[in-house]
């Protein structure tokens, strides 16, 4: 069976290896360059927090590469389309399942070996790309303090492995049901995109209950710190009433501060009158916890889809 997988899929693996090599050729030299430029830039100002403008000069010429980094978020979908969707669907469309299912190998074993190889390949490629991107983004993570934002959280760490495995499992499962390549491709792309969006925007902010920080408005060193993820923010007046920013009207403010409205000292004035800012956020040190939770979710979805594929193939009736 391993030989069959190798013969059938070596071209795909070759292309994927080529793509990965190309990415490395671009990211390794520029990453080395970026890292040395960064360490030179922060030498003067101690810690990254104190020199906020260090990124402006440093990243000015890296716009295209930032786009490329962002694009690696799409790569798992490509695995789903090229490795996952055709795995069962292309065989059934070409009728070659009649050939392979009448050799001395059970359908279960046939699918198990093929699926295992494809999922392993997805995990390896996903991990390799993520390693490159995570390493390359070291200075960006340090300066921008935005590891939770889209394009950062979903291209670094563990989650790209989860996405890649999920995408391939999705392709296999959908292909086994659709039995035609084109519908399988469309459904794989559609479902993958929908799941990514749903989890990015709906689920991810709530993996753990957010922390809350309350501090006087206008204070200089306000919590939270580091690469945190703001979920929600509101304003409390002196007696503790919560205002959404939209519901604030001039009359809501203390009389003493109204004349300052729109100017810089306004916030400090409110602060001195007992007004506070309330921030709900995911703290920076939850980054890896969130990565692990999200990866586990995608792996669980992948497991369900693989199961679906097995049921569909076992039940297939020609």
């Amino acid at each position: 069976m391993n030989y069959l997988v190798w013969r059938q899929h070596r071209n795909q693996l070759g292309f994927a290896a080529l793509g990965l090599a190309l990415l490395a050729v671009i990211l390794v030299p520029t990453g080395v360059h970026l890292a040395s430029a960064y360490s030179a830039a922060i030498k003067g100002c101690g810690s990254p927090g104190t020199c906020t403008d260090v990124g402006t000069g440093l990243f000015a010429n890296y716009g295209l590469l930032f786009d490329l980094i962002g694009l690696t978020a799409v790569v798992p979908a490509l695995f789903g389309l090229f490795w996952g969707a055709p795995l069962v669907a292309a065989e059934i469309e070409a009728g070659t399942q009649l050939l392979v299912w009448t050799q001395t190998v059970t359908r279960r074993r046939w699918l198990a070996v093929k699926t295992a190889w494809m999922l392993a390949a997805a995990a390896v490629w996903g991990a390799a790309i993520s390693l490159l991107v995570t390493w390359w983004s070291g200075p960006v993570n340090a300066v921008d303090q935005s590891r939770f934002s889209l394009g950062h959280f979903d291209t670094q760490g563990l989650v790209p492995v989860g996405y890649a495995v999920f995408a391939v499992a999705l392709g296999i499962g959908v292909g086994a049901i659709a039995r035609r390549v084109l519908p399988a491709l469309a459904m794989t792309l559609g479902v993958f995109t929908a799941v990514r969006f749903a989890i990015d925007y709906v689920l991810r902010p709530h993996y753990l209950a957010p922390r809350t920080a309350v501090f006087p408005l206008g204070s200089q060193s306000a919590p939270p710190s580091g690469s945190y993820w703001p979920i929600n923010s509101s304003i409390l007046d002196a007696s503790g009433n919560v205002f959404d920013k939209v519901h604030l009207v001039a009359a809501s403010f203390p009389a003493a501060c109204r004349s300052l409205l729109g100017s810089a000292p306004f916030d400090r004035c409110l602060g001195s009158h007992g007004w506070k800012a309330l921030v709900e956020f995911q703290p920076a040190n939850r980054f890896w916890t969130f990565q692990a939770i999200e990866t586990a979710i995608y792996l669980a979805l992948a497991a369900v889809l693989v199961l679906v594929a097995f049921v569909a193939v076992e039940r297939h009736d020609a």
Partner: peptide
Amino acid sequence: LANVSFLAQDVPLWKRLTAKDHIAIGARL
């Protein structure tokens, strides 16, 4: 599975593989 050989109508084969590949695959299965 070992005792029954089936040749389907229209002879489905893996188009990009050679006859030699098919024979080598069959030998392993």
